[in-house]
Each structure stands twice: as C-alpha cells, then as structure tokens.
Design a protein around this nucleic acid. Structure first.
Length: 891
RNA sequence: GGGUUCUUAGCUCAGUUGGUUCAGAGCACCUCGUUUACACCGAGGGGGUCGGGGGUUCGAAUCCCUCAGGACCCACCA
C-alpha cells in the first residue's frame, strides 16, 4: 500500500476549494424549482482579522448551508463586511498619526479618501481567511455596509423613519467618548465586572450666612465647579433644618439651593448629594425635576472650559483637574476626608477611555412603537431563538426598550441626511439629496430664495448598527428604487425577485452579545419594511474561552491563530475540534486538544479509506457473516441519520457531530470493518466490497457538512466521478431499520466483548483460537450469529452444551451460560468470586423490582406499560440468577 | 438592586411530559498490546447517587420549598 498512513490536509484543501469555486457550486440564484435556504453572515469588521469566535460561528453556518445544499435546496450564504465606524475610524486616525497627519488638519473629503484607501488595502482580509476554513459563501454577493447601494438604503431608511415620526433630535445626556469625540450608545459602554478603584472624597460646603457646613461625598471633585444644588432625602431628619437654605460652592462661591429629592439615599456617604446636572445622568434628571441650571464645565475632549470659573483649570484634562482641585480643597480646608472606593466606571468599548456623561444634541429613534411587532414575533415563536432561554432576556429588553441614539460624531459612516437652513433648533429638513433638501427647505422656511450655499448638512454619521440592522434586506438590494415604496415606507413584493425568493432568510448564527445591538434591531427593521421577520431561526453561539474560562483576547495572549491551527491540523480538524465542545448556547472552552481530536478523526477516516480501497477482489462467494454485517450497518446508519436529523432540527450541532463521529469510529471502523475484513492478504468478494464502498460513501455524505475537504477528496478517491462532487450530492434519507438485527448484533457484541475481556484477564493473545460452548434455550438466536462470533472474537467453533464441561472459564449473559474450555489452570476461587458478585447484584436488582411489584399502590397507580416492564425485568433477573447459580454449582 | 438561568463521573456536557437497569456520552485516566487500515492506533477497565437540607409521590437527577455557590442580562449609589 503506497498511500501514506497519515492524512495530509494541506495537500488537498486549496485544490478542492478552488474546484468548488471554479464550478460555481457556492453560487445561488432564484430557482423556482428549488426551495431556498439562505443565511446572511454576521458581517465582521472590514478591517478585522479572523479570531476563534469567527471560526466557530462560520463553521456552524457552513455546516447548515452545506447540508441544505445537499438536501437539494438553493443554498445561499451571503458574505459581507461591516464598515464599523468607530473601530475603523480609530484605526485610520492611528495610521495617519503614524504618518504625522492629524485628523483635525484634514478636510472631511480628504479624510474619507484615506479611509477608503485603508479599506481597500486591509478590508476583506477576513473574508479571504474564511475561505481557508472552507466557508461556502456565494462570494459574488459579498456585501459591504458602505457600498453605494447600501449607503443609499441607510439614507432612505433615515428619511423614512423621520417622516414616520420615529426619528427625533433631542438634547439628552449621552455617553461621550472624549478620545474618539463621539457619542456612544448605552451598549457601547463597558463596565468592568468588579468595578474599579476610585477615591471617594468628602467635601464640605458652607451654608450661606452661617458658620455651618454640609459635607457631601463625590468621586468626581472636578465637577464641583458645575454644581447646581445640594440634595438630601426628604425623609432625612438630619438635614431638615437646611432645606431651602443656600450652600456655597468652594472657589467659585456660587450660591446653590439645598433641595430634597427621593433619589438621594439616606445611608450612602453623608446623605448629601451634590447635584451636577451637566455631568451626571441622575443629576440631570434631578435638575430637570427642580429646574436647575445646567453648567457644562467640560469640553468635548475632556478638558475643562471657562464655565468652570477658575482660570487655572481651563484647558486641563478632567483627571488632571481632579488631582489639582483635591489639593486646592485640602489647602482651603474643604476636604474633610478621603476613602478608597470601588465603583463601576463606564469605558468606551472602542477606545477604553472613561466615558463622560454629556448633554448633547443627538438623533434618536423612538423605539417603543416600532419594536412592538418584533417583540411579539419572538414571544410568539414566529422567530425562534436557540437556545430558547434567550427569549426571556429578549423579552426583558424589549419591555424596557429605550430610545436609540443613532448619531455619531465621526466621518466614516453614512452621513446624516439632515440639512440646516437656519440657526433655530428646528430649522432643518431631512432628505435623500441636497436638491430635495433645498426644495423642502424653501417650503418649510417660506424663503424661496434659499440656495445650496444656505444649506448645511449635519456633520454626524449614523451608528454602524443603524446600517447593519438592514443587512438581511440590503444584501438582496431590498431598498432599491423599484421595490422600496417611499410613499408607504414599505418594501413591495413582486419587484425584486432575489429578495422575494431568499427573504426571509432561514437561520441567523451569531453571538448573544449582539442580541440587542443587532438581532433585535434586524427583526424590528424586518417587520417595519417587509412586514415580515428577517429570519426564522436565530442560533446563538457561545463565547470562545480558554480552558480556564477566560475570554480569548489579544492582551491575554490566550487566543491561538486560527490560520496556524488550520495549517497544523487541517480545516476539517479545526472545524470538528471547535464543534466537539460547543453545546448549544454554552461557552466553548477551547483547548488545542479538541482540534487534535479533530485531526485524529480525519486520520481515522483516511485509514478506513485506505483499508476499503486496498483489497483485492476475487470471484468468491460472500461469507455468511458479511451479509449480517451489511444488514446491521445499514440499520445502524438509518438509525443514526434519524438521530442526526433530530439534532439538526434542534440546532444541537455538537450532538449532531458526535452522532456521526461515533457512527464512523465505533460502528463502522471498530465493528463493521473488523467484521467483514478478509484475512491478511486475502481477497474480498465483490458483493461485500461494493456494499462497503456504498456504505462508506454514505458516511462521507453525512460527514461532508462538518468536514468538507477530506470527504470530497475521498469521495473522488473511491470512484472516478469528475462531474459528480460530494458537495452537490444528495443528502441521505433515513430509511427504516430492522430492530431485531440491532438486538441480535448487540448480543454478538456482548459475547465478543466478554471473550476479549477473558483474553485480557488471562493474558491470552487475540491470535489464540478459542472454542465457545453455549447453554441456551434459544439456540437459533446463537446460530444466527455464530459465524460472526467466530470472526469477531476469533473463535474456532461455536457449539451447544447442556452442562459446564471441566476446566472452563464462563460468563453469563441474560439467562444463558457461555463456556470457554481452556488449557490453563482455572483459578476456581477467582471464578467463584466473580460469579458471586454478579449474583449479588442480580439479586439486589430482583429485590428492588419485587418490592415495586408487591406494592399495591404501584401496581394500581402506574401505567400498565410500566408495570409490564417491571414484570419482564423480574423474569429476566430470575433467569439470570438461575444461570449464575448453575454456573456456581458446577465450579 | 431587578430579572433570567445553572450546579449530573477528573473535564466538557446529554438526560424530552417524574416510571424500559437512567445514572449516560466524548475527552482524560488505568491495564494490556509494535495483530497484517490507522500508536493521530487497538482491546479491556475503573470513576458519579445527580450542590446541601427538607417536602410532594407507589416512584424524583426530573416537581415544590430552602440554603450554598456560579453564570448572564438590565439598571446603577454619588
């Protein structure tokens, strides 16, 4: 045999991927004769690189799409990338900085030119990497969320939602990233799990006209200069006498009122809260309730401004000022004390800077009404979440849905199509183009002489999610002018064949982290624009962690390079490795050993192939036992396929793989092949070989979605079939199976195992021939499998006996006794002990069964079937006990 | 603080409506084996009483209560 004993993935993976590509097997188009099956990829960041999370996620998608393709569906997997405005802009800014270019020195157009250049250069690397994994995406459909059509779709939706009254502009306290200088949505603010160390400062404020002081506690003393009030709880008796009086802000000597508000907690700090409406969300709300002045003392870049009233702080960073002011307060005698304090500081997901609450004019989508159908869709199982536990989370979020801040103070993204023609807050119009805007502006302002020069487009761009939430429609060009009706704000059916055919998509595979960021919003957009869900199933993968349960991250250095892994273990090995340990909805504890197991599995398959294709065929009769082996494996295969379908139906991918894994390794390799394998260097009969190859082909098919490369290679290895690749072959259907054959084979396997065990314990070589004598009431059952017993257990003869011959070892199965004559000294004591242990167990078991059966309440209360089963158990146990006792007696 | 959820062999997990020996799987582990597809292998084996306690029931890993310990989501105390 000249083929290597090791499977070498590197030598074939590119070959087959190119073959699939060249033949257009990944392409999907409208085909009325076929049922569509579509998946849209969760678009990775355009400048991102492949990490383990992508590997898991895309492996699952590829499995689903390949299976659907084999099932004869028009399988369409749309790939794409996301422009990821903050992340990408940050990268571009950093790149420019390295070149010595400041963003602030560039015009918007110049910056965008750099950004596009960057995108062209680095964008899409991640998609190339996905090809190495075997991803069978329809690459001709590759989408980008800033493509021209996509860009227009986003703008159309903004205009439409504004028209429908869902979009509004408002002054709100938002999360401000002082480094990226943009607003962030709540979801983009990260709080460290255990909080962060901070210092809680106690500062005293003098009460006007007295020598009395109130002491407040704060972690942000730099905001003192923006204080507008001191608040106490109305129930707090300690301060009742101060209510209505004025306190004096240190240094600036502003007089601020002492007010009461329920928000203040009695037992925190001193019970006095300084209220800084400009720099704290809660304080802002208190300010609203009490009509307090908003004194904004912090600039967009995090430095203090003139409003703080102290010249020496102006222009300094908030954290520097904090240090300075603490020192100043101390010197002035206002600092009463400090203590260490653990608090939860919000940081920007993208830049990691401490988020500054900031009042600012931003654009929002009012979520309450627009999300109603999307909420119901999940609750009523129109959209299914896997695992379903996320239904609760989804429900909770949707019930408390908050308005979505969609403006970002960046350049890289879809620019908000709002055009201002005056200084007033309301002096703007929203339109797709400058021309339309001009017309609208003339109408709204009543100034017919307005021209383009008088219009100023909003500088901000939209949140990235405000583009990716349209992904399922936009990738099929669902907002083009033909099918998107601007009057009704709906996508009309019958105008876009692609969309009509592939939408709604079937399954979305993504991470739970973006259930609200993305999934919920896509569902909202689906109902808003198509009046229909964007996908039927949502499979939520776990997070890939290392074996210590730490999240994989660059800084920890615990994340392997996926491409290295593929090089080392093969794409199929990596795919199966990832899947071995990813139960639905649970985190994947990644361990390279899993990938090793995947590689080993590839090798096992490879060697089964070598065996099956290595025999010489001769015109000889088919051995009796081979017929049984084939019948048995056919039944096992059908049983396994049924099980596999069940797992797939429930999105239990790990279990699905495990079913196939065990079928191949245990049933096919360990039992079937040993069963039919000819003696060394002996030929095989034609019938068995043909059947075996056919069975092997079936195995390759069920393996193909999991392991596309090796299965394609071996599919072509067993037969010349240039125009008939496995990727488009027909998925096997689960046929019926003969239960009696499975039962019969189980007995065969049990006998074989017992005999192997005997050899093991007696130190007998597997090569040594043994004889088997059976005492049974059902000789025909043994006769049916005796040839197979001889083959599998290396037994020279199987015959029947009425009593135990001398010098035998024995075992008991069911009510039957099996004797193996040995030319050895039998250790009678050991045999006895073994049998007595079995007897003890059997008797104990019988007792528990009898106890149940003698319980009248059980017999009358339990269903007839259950009682019947107990009776059978009793009879079986009795037969077994009898056989063991006989064995013991004859020792 | 509000909510959701989990705790089954050394590890990662199955265990559908309580009842077929339901206590399972894969990996790991131990013993033996250089057998003629594969040592990236083969054969065999030992491990848990289902987080603790209480209850319902003829019967509970499976239902209820309680305690302990995780995880996640939301909100957030200056």
């Amino acid at each position: 045999m000249s083929i290597s004993t090791k499977y070498d993935p590197a030598s074939i993976e590119d070959k087959w991927y190119n073959h699939w590509m060249e033949n257009g097997f990944f392409k999907a188009e409208v085909n009325p004769d076929k049922e569509p099956y579509s998946i849209v990829i969760p678009p990775p960041n355009v400048t991102g690189v492949l990490h383990m999370g992508h590997m898991l996620n895309n492996t699952i998608q590829d499995i689903l799409i390949r299976k659907a393709r084999m099932e004869g569906k028009e399988a369409c997997w749309v790939p794409g990338t996301d422009h990821a405005s903050i992340a990408t802009e940050a990268k571009v800014v950093a790149m420019l900085r390295e070149k010595g270019i400041k963003k602030s020195d560039l015009s918007r157009d110049e910056f965008m030119k750099h950004a596009w250049e960057w995108k062209e250069k680095y964008g899409g690397i991640i998609l190339e990497q996905l090809k190495k994994l075997g991803a069978s995406c329809d690459w001709d459909r590759t989408a980008f969320t800033m493509d021209e059509g996509y860009y227009k779709a986003v703008i159309k939706v903004f205009v439409d939602l504004h028209k429908k009254g869902y979009i509004y502009r408002g002054l709100r306290m938002i999360n401000w990233d002082t480094e990226a200088q943009t607003a962030l949505s709540n979801e983009e603010v990260i709080y460290k799990e255990d909080g962060e160390k901070a210092t809680l400062y106690s500062v005293r404020y003098q009460i006007k006209g007295t020598e009395e002081y109130v002491t407040i506690a704060t972690v942000r003393p730099e905001t003192i200069l923006g204080d507008a009030a001191i608040a106490v709880n109305p129930k707090d008796k300690r301060y009742t006498h101060l209510i209505g009086k004025k306190a004096i802000v240190p240094f600036v000597n502003r007089e601020i009122p002492i007010i009461t508000d329920e928000h203040v907690e009695l037992d925190f700090g001193t019970g006095c809260l300084k209220v800084t409406p400009a720099h704290d969300p809660n304080d802002y709300e208190i300010g609203q309730r009490h009509d307090l002045e908003v004194i904004d003392t912090i600039n967009l870049d995090g430095t203090l401004n003139e409003a703080c009233g102290i010249d020496k702080y102006v222009g300094l960073d908030r954290f520097k000022v904090r240090k300075l002011i603490v020192k100043d307060l101390e010197e002035a005698g206002h600092l009463v004390g400090t203590e260490d304090f653990i608090t939860r500081i919000g940081r920007s997901e993208r830049t990691n800077t401490v988020v500054e609450p900031k009042l600012s004019l931003q654009w929002f989508i009012n979520m309450k009404d627009i999300s109603r159908k999307a909420h119901a869709a999940v609750m009523e199982d129109d959209v299914l979440l896997f695992p379903s536990k996320f239904k609760n989370t989804y429900n909770h979020w949707m019930e408390n849905v908050r308005d979505w801040c969609i403006s970002r103070q960046l350049w890289w993204g879809q620019r908000i199509p709002a055009y201002f023609y005056g200084q007033g807050e309301d002096d703007y119009v929203v339109a797709e183009t400058m021309e339309e805007a001009l017309q609208l502006a003339r109408e709204k302002s009543g100034k017919a002489d307005l021209d383009v020069a008088n219009l100023k487009q909003d500088e901000d761009v939209l949140d990235t999610w405000a583009s990716s939430w349209l992904f399922p429609q936009a990738v099929f060009d669902g907002f083009n002018d033909d099918c998107f009706d601007k009057e009704t704000g709906k996508i009309i059916k019958g105008k876009n064949p692609d969309l009509d055919y592939f939408y709604p998509t079937n399954t979305l595979v993504t991470a739970p982290e973006i259930l609200f960021f993305w999934v919920a919003r896509m569902i909202i957009a689906g109902y808003e624009y198509n009046g229909e869900k964007p996908f039927k199933n949502v499979y939520l993968t776990g997070i890939v962690r290392d074996k210590k349960r730490r999240k994989m991250s660059k800084s920890l250095g615990n994340s392997p390079d996926p491409l290295d892994l593929i090089k080392q273990y093969g794409a199929d090995g990596v795919r199966t490795g990832m899947l071995f340990s990813s139960p639905a909805g649970n985190d994947l504890l990644f361990d390279e050993k899993l990938v090793e197991q995947g590689r080993n599995f590839s090798n096992k398959i490879w060697n089964a192939f070598r065996l099956v294709t290595g025999w010489e065929v001769k015109d000889i009769p088919q051995p009796e036992e081979n017929k049984l082996a084939i019948e048995w494996f056919e039944s096992r295969l059908n049983q396994s396929i049924a099980e596999l379908e069940d797992h797939f139906g429930k999105f239990r991918m790990s279990d699905a793989l495990m079913t196939v894994y065990k079928l191949v390794w245990n049933d096919f390799c360990s039992w079937y092949l040993e069963w039919i394998k000819p003696e060394y260097q002996q030929p095989i009969d034609q019938v068995t070989l043909d059947k075996t190859i056919a069975l092997f082909e079936q195995l390759m098919k069920v393996l193909h979605p999991f392991m596309p490369f090796i299965t394609e290679e071996l599919w072509h290895g067993v037969k010349e079939r240039s125009n008939d690749p496995i990727i488009t072959s027909a998925w096997p259907q689960a046929g019926s199976f003969d239960k009696s054959i499975l039962v019969s084979a189980d007995l065969l396997f049990e006998i074989t195992t017992n005999l192997r065990n005997l050899r093991n314990s007696k130190g007998l070589s597997p090569k040594e021939n043994l004889e088997l004598l059976v005492k049974t009431k059902n000789e025909s059952a043994i006769k049916a499998i005796s040839a197979s017993i001889q083959k599998l257990a290396n037994v020279s003869s199987v015959s029947f006996a009425q009593a135990k011959p001398d010098n035998c070892s024995s075992f008991v199965l069911g009510g039957d006794e099996y004797f193996i004559p040995l030319n050895l000294e039998i250790d009678v004591e050991a045999e006895k002990q073994k049998l007595e242990e079995e007897l003890k167990y059997a008797k104990g078991f019988l007792m528990s069964v009898e106890k149940k059966l003698s319980n009248e309440k059980f017999v009358s209360g339990a269903p007839a079937q259950v009682v019947e089963n107990e009776k059978k158990k009793k009879a079986d146990a009795e037969a077994k006990i009898k056989a063991i006792e006989e064995s013991l007696r004859s020792l």
